[in-house]
Simulated scan of single mutants.
Amino acid sequence: MKYLGIEASDLVKSGGIHTAREICQQPELWKKTFEEIKHQEVAIAQFMDEALGNTKRIILAGAGTSAFIGLSLRGVFQRHSGIATDCIATTDIVSHPKDYLTPEIPTLLVSFARSGNSPESVAAIALADEICHTCYHLIITCNAEGKLAHYSSKSRHYIINLPPESNDQSLAMTSSYSTMLLVGLLIAKRKDLKTLESSVETVIKYGRKLIELYAGDFREIAKKDFRRAVFLGSGPFFGTATESHLKLQEFTDGKVICKNDSYLGFRHGPKAVVDETTLVVYLLTNNAYAYHYERDLILAMKKGTPPLLEIGISESEIKDITLQHAFQLSENGKSVEEEFLAVCYIIPAQLLGFFKSLASGLMPDAPSATGAITRVVEGVNIYSLT
């Protein structure tokens, strides 16, 4: 059997079998997860209606990659709930809880976690219970056996355990990230769940296209001698760009130094990072208004040192910009709301990271040669607030 065009036996030898399988399983995992959320639709709606009826603030939280999910979801949660929504990493909440949690503000804390065993994950929930007079918890985790899934909170809470295969065995999160992101979208838009099936099916189709049709292209791109990489995305794609930068950097054990930014933000100094060894990846919106700003930045890249390579990821054809590589997902123009594209837009960085890891002589499943980073963070002590 092959994954990403490579025999499974060869992937086992090179230390990449888990990563390759977990990247490839995403479209089917999204389909399976959507069915599970539909099965829990009534229970989720009851909990969310109560929580949102009694809170004035939503916090989307997680550690590392799990924190970046909130960056893509903040807007859709705020628009659909009408409640002020913040994305705050549990790592920030734990070190400075009173900067982020207010006793008098009833809060819904939405926690995302792959293993649910990161020390900050449970600590953030405990701190919210301790500080906030009223607090609700929605816990979304890939590990039904993890500490987070079994946390006994004094506050009202609802736990969503995703299918066990979403609990990636590779060091770097791939299917766990995209699947938790999809679940967050479905919950934010839960009142439209019955009409979202076509959007989910479209995203599944796009994911398959990236994996089955374009994986070879990303394998060739990974052979290029880029030593820096910049991922640009705005709105829901800012979270995708943030996660993309971490994925490529993790998979290459820091050999490729990565950065992310928004299109407008990149103009204000960060553009100086671009040199002749830089790969630039543009995550492009299907929002006509926002696209004006993206197009202007891409055209402005002609000034200054040109990057080694520019790549565009888009739903429909890019008609007015010339790039070395343009990956188009739809043959029929815009099909889904832009936040749904964030679910599949992470796959290019996963593929780049995987293939660059192999090209660098590393093991994608465990790319950290020195053990500096681990699958579940180690060595974090949690201290009492009092």
Rank of each mutant, 00 (worst) to 15 (best):
L4N: 03
K13N: 11
K13S: 12
S14M: 13
R21M: 09
E22Y: 02
E22G: 04
W30M: 00
H39N: 15
Q40Y: 08
V42C: 11
A45N: 02
A45S: 10
G53D: 14
G53M: 03
I58E: 04
I58T: 09
I59P: 03
G75N: 13
V76M: 06
R79I: 12
C87A: 15
I88C: 06
A89I: 11
T91G: 05
D92L: 06
H96T: 15
K98P: 02
Y100K: 14
P103H: 09
P106H: 11
L108W: 00
A113K: 04
N117I: 07
A123H: 08
A126C: 04
C132V: 10
C135H: 10
H137W: 10
L138R: 02
I139F: 04
C142D: 02
L148Y: 03
K154H: 14
R156E: 11
Y158F: 14
P163D: 08
D168G: 10
D168Q: 05
Q169V: 14
L171Q: 10
T174F: 04
T179I: 02
L182P: 03
L185Y: 08
K189Q: 07
K191C: 09
T195I: 08
K205N: 12
R208W: 14
L213F: 12
Y214G: 09
A215G: 01
E220M: 10
I221D: 00
K223F: 07
F226W: 08
R227A: 11
A229G: 08
G233E: 10
S234T: 13
G235E: 08
F237M: 14
V256S: 02
C258P: 06
N260C: 13
G269Y: 09
A272H: 05
V274P: 00
E276Q: 13
V280N: 03
V280F: 08
Y289E: 15
H292Q: 15
L297A: 06
I298F: 05
L308R: 11
E331F: 15
V336H: 00
A359L: 11
T370G: 14
A372R: 15
T374M: 15
V376C: 11
V377H: 00
E378C: 04
